[in-house]
């Protein structure tokens, strides 16, 4: 193996983002005159994982499990309650406003809702051009316009779209603009917060393909947040499964879909219908009993234990830690 290949392998495996013990609690206020904090919604509770350079890390879980909050915390759109977010070795939670602002050009976000993620009062050209101008990547108006047109072409839009306003575009086109905006600053890391769940299925595929193409071209790293398991399976290299603000399982894509170890992951995967009616009728489904508990008052011990098919008494007392059961396959369950 040559030296360059070796170093390439090394950079591929090194983490671009490391989340350590991330906690995000939202206060719950009560009282008519005195606003007292009566409780905390534990949206994200002690979550740790790392994102390797150049990979796509899928983040799945049902609604309300804290996956979006995790993404927002990584980008410092929410102040974290506790924990560290290391971006290329630098702890973002300790940076001041000005330092953070400079780092922000390396990490961007694509939002779920293509309708409210673009300023309705600005043209597409202004939306994409503004960050380039603000960060002084280009100082000349003409060059800036050329760069906007280049970015529009890159995401598969007509450069003439620069003159248009967001309301003149379709949902898929707007999402492309959102991607172009995220790329305008040549970001290395992009959080995709359910970028396709608001789109038609036919458009979803186009956007997914575009994201993959851009990743190959600019060696981007994605944190892909979604609840659609088939989409995540398609795009991700590794997958993190979250339940009620905690990580249940982290594994390689193939490994996770072939042999899920955590009972929650098993239930989640078995909820996906099989296209073949014969198989669908015969297969055994893991159906969870009960509802998702409130994150304000999560169950003691393992948060999944009241609904878990294999839970024993001690699951209600001991919080299971993530353990590496197989190489690169981490599970937070004491029964596995």
């Amino acid at each position: 193996m040559s030296r360059t290949q070796n170093s390439k392998l090394k950079t591929q495996n090194s983490a671009i983002v490391e989340v350590r013990g991330l906690k995000k609690y939202f206060p719950v206020f009560s009282g008519l005159f005195t606003q007292r904090v009566v409780g905390w919604v534990k949206a994200v509770d002690d979550v740790s994982f790392s994102i390797r350079r150049g990979e796509t890390l899928g983040l799945v879980g049902e609604s309300g499990c804290g996956k979006t909050t995790t993404g927002r915390c990584i980008l410092q759109l929410e102040r974290v309650t506790e924990g560290e977010i290391l971006f290329e070795g630098q702890d973002l939670t300790r940076l001041g406003d000005a330092e953070l602002r400079l780092l922000r050009r390396h990490m961007q976000i694509v939002f779920q809702d293509p309708y409210s993620s673009l300023n309705p009062r600005m043209t597409i050209g202004q939306i994409i051009g503004e960050p380039i101008w603000v960060h002084r990547l280009l100082r000349d108006r003409g060059e800036c316009r050329d760069r906007v047109e280049e970015l529009l072409t890159l995401v598969g839009l007509n450069p003439l779209m620069a003159q248009r306003y967001p309301h003149e575009l379709s949902g898929g086109q707007r999402q492309r603009v959102g991607i172009a905006r995220a790329l305008a600053l040549e970001a290395r890391f992009v959080v995709c917060d359910e970028p396709v769940s608001a789109l038609d299925v036919s458009i979803q595929a186009q956007i997914i393909n575009l994201l993959e193409e851009l990743q190959g071209r600019f060696s981007l790293t994605y944190l892909f947040i979604a609840h659609d398991l088939s989409v995540v399976r398609h795009i991700s290299d590794r997958i993190v499964v979250m339940y009620l603000g905690r990580v249940a399982e982290i594994a390689d894509r193939v490994e996770l879909y072939e042999s899920p170890l955590h009972p929650y992951t098993q239930a989640l995967l078995s909820a996906v219908p099989v296209p073949d009616p014969a198989v669908e009728a015969q297969r055994e489904r893991v159906v969870l009993k009960g509802e998702v508990p409130s994150p304000m008052n999560p169950p003691s011990g393992c948060v999944f234990h009241p609904r878990c098919p294999i839970a024993v008494e001690e699951c209600g007392q001991i919080v299971p830690q993530l353990r590496e059961i197989r190489p690169d396959h981490w599970v937070a369950c004491s029964r596995v």
């Binding site: 400079l102 961007q108 939002f111 779920q112 993620s117 503004e130 603000v134 600053l185």
Partner: peptide
């Protein structure tokens, strides 16, 4: 609360802008 304000923050724009 709208995402385009979040986007503006994520792009590193100043408060005044």
């Amino acid at each position: 609360q709208t995402p385009f304000i979040d986007a503006a923050r994520a792009l590193g724009f100043g408060h005044a802008r």
